[in-house]
């Protein structure tokens, strides 16, 4: 069975890699398998984790007992039926005549996300970032390395200049324009570094697949 699994995995890996030559039936077959399996994977995972785990177990709690044998089963939460009803309304999207009713659960999702993001993003992406940028250059006993001091100044200047660049309510001229220009330099460095980092992560995935083909499958790498 393990032998078959290795050959199957190699067949699928090579099928996807074959796209580098050109679009071909082997690649299309592997792609179709990937699409179907991905949909099936999330279909099952979300059923057991959310629909069964949250709704079903919440409405019909599993019997539980403590060490002394006393029942400690949780109280059923019938409010979860509202969530299930909204979920079923979401599926009405598949029925053309009453598809509009799926706007209700969609509105719920959009409202929840907006409410959560309003607070969470403001806290994590705004307040915490400002807090992390404006830091003392020296510790309590003036114990700081030149590396850290210069680095902190670079971060503070770069963040400020980058924000100035994103401020479009004032024309980018004079000192303001100069600061915005410095901001562009920092943004370019960021994009370049992020690009390099992304390429390297993809490369490491590619090395992993080559390692599988040449090592696990063909046994050429011990």
């Amino acid at each position: 069975m393990e032998h078959f699994a290795l050959w199957l995995a190699a067949f699928l890996t090579l099928g996807i890699v074959s796209f580098l030559y050109k679009d071909n039936p082997w690649y299309k077959l592997c792609e179709a398998i990937f699409v179907g399996l991905s949909a099936g994977y999330w279909f099952v995972v979300l059923f057991w984790d959310n629909i069964y785990g949250k709704f079903w177990v919440g409405v019909f709690p599993l019997e539980e007992f403590d060490e002394a044998g006393r029942e400690i089963t949780a109280e059923p939460d019938y409010w979860l039926f509202v969530g299930a009803a909204l979920g079923i309304l979401m599926l009405m999207r598949l029925v053309p005549n009453i598809g509009w009713i799926s706007r209700w659960p969609l509105a719920f999702i959009v409202g929840s996300t907006a409410g959560l993001y309003l607070i969470n993003y403001f806290s994590s992406n705004m307040m915490r970032q400002v807090q992390g940028t404006i830091v003392p250059l020296f510790g309590a006993g003036y114990d700081a390395s030149a590396y850290a001091i210069v680095g902190n100044i670079v971060v503070a200047v770069g963040t400020f200049a980058g924000l100035v660049y994103f401020f479009f309510s004032k024309e980018h001229r004079g000192v303001f324009g100069g600061t915005a220009k410095v901001g562009v330099f920092f943004l370019m460095l960021t994009f370049g570094a992020s690009f390099g980092y992304t390429v390297m992560s993809r490369m490491s995935l590619l090395i992993g697949r080559m390692d599988f083909l040449l090592g696990d499958w063909l046994g050429m790498i011990k």
Partner: peptide, 25 residues
């Protein structure tokens, strides 16, 4: 580069995104 100039640029972008998200929300 990753620890300092990249962090600075990322922070500027993140703060910009946060302000945009708050107003859109």
């Amino acid at each position: 580069i990753m620890n300092f100039p990249q962090t600075a640029g990322q922070r500027a972008i993140m703060i910009g995104i946060a302000l945009g998200l708050v107003s859109t929300s």
